[in-house]
Amino acid sequence: MEYLVRIIEILVWPGVALIALFVLRRPIADLIPMLQRLKYKNLELEFQRDLDKLREETRDARLKTTLPPSDESVVVDLDYYLQQVRESSPRNAVIEAWLGLESSAVSTATHFKLMPKRARVSASSALKALVTAGVLSDNDMRIINELRFLRNKAVHELSAIISEYEAAKFLEIARDVTDIIAGEAWQKYGGCSG
């Protein structure tokens, strides 16, 4: 009898764990892509979001966009600045790139008078106005929302580790989205406001 009790004691926790895994398999599977790092005792696994896939999607959309004329020296200076920030602090580079994307959305929406009169000007209201005006597609907004998720991770998760590689990919994607915003608005409205 003691032998049977001992076997049951040994099998109870693994059995509970297996049942929990079976019941929670879908929610756990949905969380895995969002994990940055998983550490258990001596086992440490890192999960990188599929930034390369997102990068390719953005690059394809960017190549279909005609950019408005711009001062190339400003672009080079901004790229240099973001590269320096990325090398010293990948987290801050993500934040700076996001702020640039938001600034582009706000300035484009206000320049082309896409915001409702007396509307509070914010990045989210500017992005909504750009979608409503047909400047941004649903796919563009999906990419922006994925970037927002990563930016939120950089800002709010103090333990989040953002590699230089991830920051570089984020910067490239944010730059392409910024170009898409400006280029699509330029194409749709012919470079003149209102």
Results as ranks from 00 to 15, higher is better:
Leu24Thr: 15
Arg37Thr: 11
Glu164Asp: 08
Leu147Met: 15
Ile144Glu: 02
Glu96Trp: 00
Ser159Asp: 13
Thr65Glu: 13
Thr58Trp: 00
Cys192Tyr: 10
Ala61Ser: 13
Val177Ser: 07
Trp98Gln: 13
Arg62Val: 09
Glu9Leu: 12
Pro27Val: 12
Glu146Asn: 10
Ala129Asn: 05
Asn139Thr: 02
Ser89Val: 03
Asp30Cys: 06
Val85Arg: 01
Ala123Ser: 15
Val177Arg: 07
Leu43Val: 13
Arg148Ile: 05
Ile10Gln: 14
Leu43Ala: 14
Ala154Ser: 14
Asn145Met: 11
Val155Ser: 10
Thr108Met: 04
Ala174Arg: 08
Gly100Asp: 12
Lys53Val: 05
Leu31Glu: 06
Ala154Phe: 07
Ile162His: 08
Gln187Tyr: 02
Val12Ser: 09
Pro68Ser: 05
Met1Phe: 10
Ile162Glu: 07
Pro69Gly: 14
Glu72Gln: 12
Ile162Met: 09
Gln187Leu: 10
Ala129Glu: 03
Leu82Tyr: 04
Ala182Tyr: 00
Tyr3Thr: 08
Asp71Gly: 04
Gln48Met: 05
Val85Pro: 00
Pro69Trp: 10
Gly183Met: 09
Ala167Arg: 00
Asp176Tyr: 11
Tyr165Gly: 02
Pro90Thr: 04
Glu44Asp: 11
Ser107Tyr: 04
Ala93His: 05
Glu72Lys: 12
Leu51Ala: 02
Pro33Met: 02
Met141Ser: 08
Leu45Thr: 01
Lys117Val: 14
Arg49Asn: 04
Gln83Arg: 12
Ala133Arg: 02
Ile95Thr: 13
Ile162Ser: 08
Ala185His: 07
Tyr189His: 09
Lys39Thr: 09
Glu56Phe: 05
Val23Asp: 02
Ile28Pro: 02
Arg91Val: 01
Leu21Gly: 15
Val76Ala: 15
Ser89Glu: 08
Glu172Leu: 12
Val12Cys: 07
Thr132Cys: 00
Leu158Asp: 12
Leu150Asn: 11
Tyr81Asp: 08
Arg151Met: 06
Leu31Gln: 10
Arg120Met: 13
Thr58Ile: 01
Ser159Leu: 10
His156Gln: 09
Ser89Gln: 07
Ile32Ser: 02
Leu35Gln: 11
Arg49Ala: 06
Ala167Glu: 00
Val177Tyr: 05
Gly190Met: 05
Ala17Met: 12
Glu2Trp: 09
Ile10Thr: 15
Gly194Gln: 08
Leu21Asp: 07
Gln83His: 13
Ser88Trp: 00
Asn139Ala: 12
Leu101Arg: 06
Gly191Glu: 01
Ser107Ile: 02
Ala109Asn: 03
Val75Lys: 11
Ser73Thr: 11
Ala93Ser: 15
Phe170Ser: 09
Arg148Leu: 15
Tyr81Phe: 14
Thr178His: 01
Arg91Glu: 00
Lys64Val: 12
Gln84Tyr: 03
Ser70Lys: 11
Leu4Phe: 13
Leu147Thr: 06
Lys188Gln: 11
Cys192Ala: 12
Pro33Thr: 03
Arg148Gly: 09
Glu56Val: 04
Cys192Arg: 12
Ser137Thr: 15
Val23Glu: 03
Ala123Ile: 03
Val121Gln: 13
Ala105Lys: 05
Ser122Met: 09
Leu78Cys: 06
Asn92Arg: 08
Glu56Gly: 00
Tyr189Met: 01
Asp140Cys: 06
Val135Phe: 01
Asp79Tyr: 07
Leu54Ile: 13
Glu157Tyr: 11
Pro116Trp: 03
